[in-house]
Computed example of a mutant assay.
Amino acid sequence: MYTYAMKRYTGSTGESQIVSDRTADQIFGSLLQEIVSGRLAPGEPLSEQPLAARFGVSRTPVREALHRLEQARLAERGTRRAFVVRQQSMDELERLFEAAGEIEGAIAALAALRMSEIERRQLAALLQEGEVTTDPEGYAALNLAFHAAIRTGARNDILAASLQDLNLRTFGWRDANFRADADRMATSHIEHAAIAEAIIGKDAQAARQHMRSHVATAFLVLAETLSAASSDRRP
């Protein structure tokens, strides 16, 4: 679910590469959850060798996972060039989610005008699937698919490219919300339903507003989670 650029290969070497990518995805997801939950505090080291031993893998997928965390601005190089958990300010996260909400809102508005009938029905099917999904991991994957379908339906590669970096830096947090907050899947689905209804009904303005609200709510849930984690760490 955390795959951003998995390549397809053929042959035994290619199969090993895909396995390595999937392992890196799993390590990335585990470390992300620990950062969001506060179990990994800002400044805490993320050393390749101890992590490789912990996950029972070579250093290669660990290194890939750490680079993804760096790209997502969740990790940074410390004084000795080793990775550490990066301090995230609430102001920075708020600006990040605000930007993502504005771009995703524009994409949703375009999707309402440009999606084909087949694409609208596919969006409705994703919504229906999300209604019966109770597993956070499964819902996170559906969440990605839902947003990707809207992005494709908007048919604007410039906006899609602008969103790519923001997605790398926000979707991990948004996915983690589904595990950290027991109610988030239900509220997310309600928000998805409003977005889908607007897109299927070709109401561009409503689609924009519901998407912006959806991303804003994701930030507010995250802010509460981070605040609770910070309180738990205080002596």
Rank of each mutant, 00 (worst) to 15 (best):
A108F: 04
V85E: 09
H147L: 09
D203Q: 14
A160Q: 11
H214S: 01
E102S: 15
Q205M: 05
E98D: 15
Q33R: 15
D175I: 06
H67Y: 11
Y2E: 04
A196L: 02
E64G: 14
I150G: 01
Q49P: 03
G105K: 00
R86P: 09
L113I: 05
T133C: 08
G138T: 14
A206V: 02
R212Y: 13
E70G: 12
D175V: 02
L222F: 01
A111K: 00
D165Q: 11
L159K: 14
H189K: 02
N167C: 10
E34I: 08
L51H: 06
E64K: 14
V132M: 07
A125C: 07
S16D: 02
R73I: 07
Q122D: 15
M6L: 12
R77H: 07
A194H: 14
T170I: 10
D157W: 03
Y9V: 05
L66I: 07
I107H: 00
G172P: 01
L226W: 07
T79P: 14
T3G: 14
R59H: 09
V85G: 04
D183K: 13
A207E: 01
A194F: 06
T170K: 12
T79Y: 13
S213Y: 08
T13P: 12
A112D: 00
V85I: 10
R212N: 12
E48H: 15
L127P: 05
A206H: 02
T3A: 15
L31H: 08
A180E: 10
E34Q: 09
A5S: 09
